[in-house]
Design a protein around this nucleic acid. Structure first.
Lengths: 165, 165
DNA sequence: CAAATATAGATGTATATACATTTATTTCAA
DNA sequence: TTGAAATAAATGTATATACATCTATATTTG
């Protein structure tokens, strides 16, 4: 048992130290916790803040466009929007030309809350950059952009259609 | 309205392009989707695979130690373990010396499934590295380690106890 | 034009995440 | 030694995430 167990342990250590997904998920938990602790004082989570911010940057945007932009499943976005719509922070109105589409925008209250919460985001961002170092973050940030491009350049759904599985 | 709206839009674009948390969460969604698509063929999610792998690397480990190691709330870990324990992949047994503590380990079935799933993880990892580039990933990986250290070196809970709020 | 196909969003189900609180146990101090 | 404080895990609640599927609408094709 000992030899086999040692083999398993060594293999597991190797996977744990090389798995890209494990690394990015662990880091994301740490970063999210930092931002959430600041944003909680404004009654928002960082996920909600960034979602409202994304809508604000578009002014008005269909669900499917925003989901693609955020690399997020449409159904996930629908679910994430629910509490914001219920709280009167986000408006979802049917499109005039295509009845399937719903356009998202911030309500006046949503825009106001986003403005109120921004200083807390700034503190979180400042603490993060202070801890990590401006230069280091700039480098990692570039790397993240690179990964985003690399992964979004994958095969299109239409290409996959005739492919094996 | 137009001027104010433009201001809001510009501000939102600035936050969206600089927020570290938004960037890492977006990237993590993309990376997780890639790994999940491979691991699903083994009937596991990448989160479950990496959790089982982490337990395997310890051999046996208390919940609170694993949670700290993974930068994960203890309650989150408890919840994530639930389906694995129910499926008979992970064992959770009370510690002999401290009755509060529960030690986690893989069951034989868990070890077997981990082994079976490993080739799918290897394909995911290979696709990721192939798309991103070995050199780029090595650099980003170093940056992630740096961020992990920077954020875990924060104030201990005991230090926070007398702090404001 | 009508039938087949494709698309947008919503819903059912399941897991992932964390805070506040509860329960059981241990440690520490008067 | 016992009562207070601390710790480990579990539970209540709420949001985050995605797949399979469903409904409604739009587009394409025969």
């Amino acid at each position: 048992m000992t030899t086999q167990q040692n083999k398993n342990t060594q293999q597991a250590i190797h996977i744990g130290s090389s798995c890209a997904c494990f690394a990015v998920r662990k880091m994301t938990r740490a970063v999210t916790q930092l931002y959430d602790h600041h944003l909680s004082e404004a009654g928002l989570r960082i996920t909600q803040f960034t979602l409202m911010n994304a809508i604000s940057s578009f002014g008005q945007v269909p669900v499917y466009v925003l989901a693609e932009e955020l690399v997020m499943d449409r159904t996930t976005l629908t679910r994430n929007l629910k509490p914001l719509i219920k709280a009167g922070l986000v408006a979802s109105v049917p499109d005039q030309k295509d009845a399937r589409v719903r356009n998202l925008s911030l309500t006046p209250q949503g825009a106001e809350l986003l403005k109120t919460a921004t200083p807390y985001w700034e503190r979180a961002q400042a603490e993060f950059v202070e801890k990590v170092g401006e230069r280091s973050w700039a480098e990692v940030s570039q790397g993240i952009s690179l990964i985003d491009r690399a992964l979004s350049a994958g095969p299109r759904p239409s290409d996959r259609m005739m492919a094996s599985r």
